[in-house]
């Protein structure tokens, strides 16, 4: 329950802050994707069915706040949850570099697949400048993810002990 509430609050406040409050003032590439981080965290650190439940609200928040075709973002976020769960199970992620690598690769994989889909459907809305901005967004979100994930996981381990 505690996991659920903390991740719910993180993704809800993060999405609200970025989409309703800071958008229009702060460029999109400086706004970290908090619901994405909550989905990845539940996959990496929250075991069993609780992790799945924790991933549901942030996935719905991503679906509402992203202008993708209906429900594609939700399904994509659930795929992201299972992918991060597999990463968490097969590779032990306790050190900063491995955690950074996991988050960067998941962000890059998601971005690449959406860009590929848009390209295949005939859209060409991407430029070199966009690529540079997206790289900044991935780096910035990953840099926030590492201390956040480590802090939350250490806290929960202490509570368990």
């Amino acid at each position: 329950m505690k996991h659920f509430l903390v991740l719910f609050a993180l993704s809800y406040l993060g999405a609200s802050l970025c989409v309703w409050w800071l958008s229009g003032f702060v460029p999109w590439f400086l706004l970290p994707d908090f619901p994405f981080l909550a989905v990845v965290f539940s996959g990496l650190f929250v075991p069993g069915g609780a992790g799945f439940l924790c991933a549901l609200p942030p996935a719905i928040f991503r679906e509402i706040t992203t202008s993708a075709p209906s429900w594609s973002m939700f399904l994509g976020s659930m795929a992201l949850y299972f992918a991060s769960r597999e990463i968490g199970r097969r590779f032990l992620l306790r050190s900063e570099p491995s955690l950074l690598g996991a988050v960067v690769s998941l962000l890059a994989a998601e971005s690449f697949s959406v860009v590929l889909l848009l390209f295949l459907s005939g859209g060409r809305p991407f430029s070199f400048l966009w690529g540079a901005q997206e790289a900044v967004r991935i780096a910035w979100t990953s840099l926030i993810a590492v201390p956040l994930f480590l802090d939350l996981s250490v806290r929960w381990r202490r509570v368990k002990e």
Binding site: P69, S70, G76, A79, E86, R89
Partner: peptide, 27 residues
């Protein structure tokens, strides 16, 4: 099974991305 679920979800996501489904209106 998790990897298979990832693949299935991605296929479903691509499907609704390319051809939005009316069945999902129930949700």
């Amino acid at each position: 099974w998790r990897t298979l679920v990832v693949v299935a979800l991605l296929v479903a996501a691509i499907q609704v991305f390319v051809r939005p489904s009316t069945a999902l209106e129930r949700a």
